[in-house]
Design a protein around this nucleic acid. Structure first.
Lengths: 243, 243
DNA sequence: GCCATTTCTTGACTTTTATCAAGCGAAATT
DNA sequence: AATTTCGCTTGATAAAAGTCAAGAAATGGC
């Protein structure tokens, strides 16, 4: 275990790197870091379940964290899977004192938690920061709108194609090799389908677009072919501004 | 047509009534009203299409407005249908200068538009207002999360039941009579299904829960029965806090 | 390196939703 | 009042996705 001071300065340097925190002064950041806690969590750890008390904002530094809602019947709907720079628990800001979703680590992660009242204070104090938060929320809402669109108008193979394209750069013409960042089961739920459907849909996508899949590795020889197949059922087209 | 001054004061009184604008001073409100425009629009009017320039924030005073995204293939995904108090166009705040969706009046509506830079200025000036906007955005994001959940885990009849329950008060034990606020076709798309599916699913719901439907009128004799049938596939249960 | 566990795939089948086509009924137009 | 339009329903059929079950492949622990 690192000494406390060393850990604090590490947290501070991580916070400084977050786009959202750019408008904050060094003093303000130091104030956050003072009360922030950094944790390393293993895959499978449930950070909290829905309806847990909501007092902190969490920021993902590395790894992947799944946000989900569970029905009485036991089905789960994954609303998002976050990586570095993603944060959650912000509903505390709007007066919800219970978490509306659960959070589970799906790939070993480092997570910083910050008491939410500190952020609320900072929003009030620094209007530039407030504006940055508004913009971030707005962008997130837009992403949710797109998610709703995807789930209603895209077929399962198209949703997978869209997911893969999120990891491709727009200027990349040649062959692309990428690795699925977390388990296929999680990807499946992230895309609103069952693992079996995912498996079959991936096979179909392979057939239609010539991509090659071996385990978690995906090779895309002809990016345009994948784009043509995937984005025909979308309002945006690759490279999408909001991913 | 009313004289300009009378119209301005009408706009002002409408703005004053909005929960979101509560933190604003009278001066600030008057400033907004000065540059705000009130319009009455007929059902069927397209306020703007996706990719239109995004310079205003719109606030619905009465009637209903549908927000939707259209794919290249011509399918449309309705992300929301707004009534009094709902607003849209707020993506301008996060630097998007194109509307990410289209907006169409689905029931005769009164709509106020406000130049977005005025609101951006006010967010910067009044941190209480900034906080209110953050909270509003946060709540909207949560609603989108629930929407995603509903579309993945609820069946078509359940989604309709859930929709009907939004118009019921939690304390209402006895029979409830309500009217669908806009065309069934719009409700169908709002719930992410085809009109034909909506029609059949409504018949199924009627069968399962004993509700009676005649045109746009729905009579619910046994609210609990509807709740039991509908909310079993949801993480929240009636009466839901966020509708 | 081997075994145990987990994750993924495949097959057979069911359920749900979409699609295409036709017909009904209420409301607006003339 | 007749006609046209639009919204809604219904039927037949197809496509998509879910479910249950079994087996294959990959992964992690020892």
């Amino acid at each position: 275990m690192l000494p406390v001071s060393a850990q604090k300065s590490m947290v501070l340097s991580h916070l400084r790197r977050q786009a959202l925190f750019k408008p904050l002064s060094d003093d303000a950041l130091a104030g956050l870091a003072e009360y922030a806690a950094l944790k390393r969590e293993k895959k499978g750890t449930v950070l909290f379940s829905a309806e847990a008390p909501n007092e902190k904002i969490y920021l993902v530094l590395s790894g992947w964290v799944k946000l989900f809602r569970e029905t009485l019947a036991g089905d789960e709907a994954v609303t998002d899977v976050l990586s570095s720079g993603g944060f959650f628990g912000e509903f505390g800001l709007s007066g919800h004192d219970e978490m509306p979703y659960g959070a589970e680590v799906v790939e070993d992660a480092e997570i910083v938690s910050i008491p939410r009242f500190l952020l609320a204070e900072e929003i009030m104090r620094n209007s530039l920061f407030g504006m940055a938060v508004v913009q971030n929320m707005t962008r997130q809402r837009l992403q949710r709108d797109m998610e709703i669109e995807h789930r209603t108008v895209q077929s399962a193979p198209q949703r997978i194609g869209c997911f893969l394209l999120k990891f491709c750069r727009g200027d990349n013409a040649g062959p692309v090799v990428l690795h699925l960042p977390y388990d296929k089961t999680v990807v499946a739920h992230r895309l609103g389908m069952q693992p079996e459907t995912f498996s079959r849909a991936l096979a179909k996508l392979r057939e239609e677009t010539g991509i090659r899949v071996r385990g978690a590795t995906v090779e895309i020889d002809n990016l345009q072919k994948l784009v043509d197949y995937t984005c025909s059922a979308c309002s945006a087209s690759f490279p999408c501004a909001d991913k």
